[in-house]
Structures are given as C-alpha cells and as structure tokens.
C-alpha cells in the first residue's frame, strides 16, 4: 500500500523550480491581475502568517528560494516592495503587481500556509478545548492587531475599521479559513480564483 505523506504535485513543482526559474505557465494559463482589494487581502494573509509564525519573515525568503522564486523575491526589500502595493500600507506604492509577481506571491502564501497548517487547524477546529482555543485566538488577535497598527496607515478609515473589534472578529476568522483552504495541491487555484473575484 502506497502511503501518501505529502501532496503529489507540490514536491514535483518545488524540485522543478530549484534549477529553472519560475514560469507563469507552471501554474495558470491566464494572466493574473489582482485588483486593489485583492492586494489588500494578499498582504493581510501574509500578516496572518507572520502573526502565527514569529520567524515567518525569514521563512518567507527561505520558502521563496526553495520554490525557485529568487527572481521575484531575492531579498526582504523586494518582497516588501511587492507588499507595499497594498494601498492601506503606510508606505504604499501605486500600480498593480504584474502577473508573474502575483502568481509567485500566491504560491508563496499557499506553501507557507501548508507549513503553519497545524496552527491554522487548531484555530478553526471546534473540537479543541474551548478555553485553550480562546487563548490561542486572543494571542493571535493581539499579534495581528500589533502588526496591522505597525505597518498600516492608521489615519485611514479603512484601517480604523480593520482594527475595530466587531469587524475584526469576522475578518480575522475569514483570513484564517482562507489560509487553511489554500493549503494543498488545489489550494493555489482556489486562492487565486478567490482573489481575482475581488476585482469584480
């Protein structure tokens, strides 16, 4: 009996990307253009990863190297520049990410979500002890709110809304669920489709 320990397609992609540069045709046939709301969402997902994994900033770069995305994210600065397309940032950049950068970022998020999957699962599982789960959520809220208030433009009403509790609760749960559903071989396609939907 053949026991499957990891996704059947992802490792093959990773191995393939070690030598050759990342190609758009590897993931999606159509060019990916993510709109303003999609860029906000992408950056928030990366912040969620950072909130759950304290070493995520380094982990993102390592994973990027492993996936063969060095051309897009060779260092922290380039990754930061991509994330600054989020209009809610303190130092926001005008314009949109190009198709390749968007694909690379989506692949990076999906792979990172796979790494932190145990944490994500604990948060969304209803079978965990309630008080323990409450503690985890509170810790996660605190970290994410810290990260948002540190990096986003707090004078903007959209950011103030992000930080208001009644809105935050539903949004943060949705972000966690999005990351959990982005895991696995079909996760990249699902995440891409959901981000592109925000364009409409």
């Amino acid at each position: 009996m053949d026991q499957m320990t990891a996704s059947p397609t992802m490792p093959q992609k990773l191995e393939g990307h070690k030598k050759k540069p990342f190609q758009l045709t590897d993931l999606s046939a159509k060019p990916v253009v993510i709109g303003r709301r999609g860029l906000e969402r992408l950056d928030l997902l990366l912040l969620v990863i950072e909130a759950l994994d304290l070493n995520a900033s380094k982990g993102l770069l390592w994973t990027s190297d492993k996936l063969g995305l060095q051309d897009y994210f060779p260092n922290h600065v380039e990754l930061w520049k991509c994330r600054c397309h989020n209009p809610l940032r303190k130092t926001a950049r005008r314009g949109q990410l190009n198709s390749m950068q968007s694909e690379a970022l989506i692949l990076l998020i999906s792979t990172m979500a796979d790494k932190i999957y145990p944490d994500l699962r604990q948060l969304i599982s209803s079978k965990e002890p309630a008080n323990k789960n409450q503690e985890r959520w509170e810790l996660f809220y605190a970290r994410l709110i810290d990260l948002i208030s540190e990096r986003f433009n707090n004078r903007r009403s959209a950011v103030k809304k992000l930080l208001s509790y009644e809105y935050t609760d539903a949004l943060f749960r949705n972000l966690i669920l999005t990351l959990a559903l982005s895991v696995g071989p079909g996760g990249v396609d699902r995440l891409r489709a959901s981000l592109m939907e925000l364009n409409y």
Partner: peptide, 11 residues
C-alpha cells in the same frame, strides 16, 4: 478537501 485535491492532482 485536502484528500480529495490530492487524489484529483495525483498523476
């Protein structure tokens, strides 16, 4: 969904 995806994408 992870298991179903794994099956669907299994070459």
């Amino acid at each position: 969904i992870y298991c179903l995806d794994s099956l669907r994408y299994d070459k």
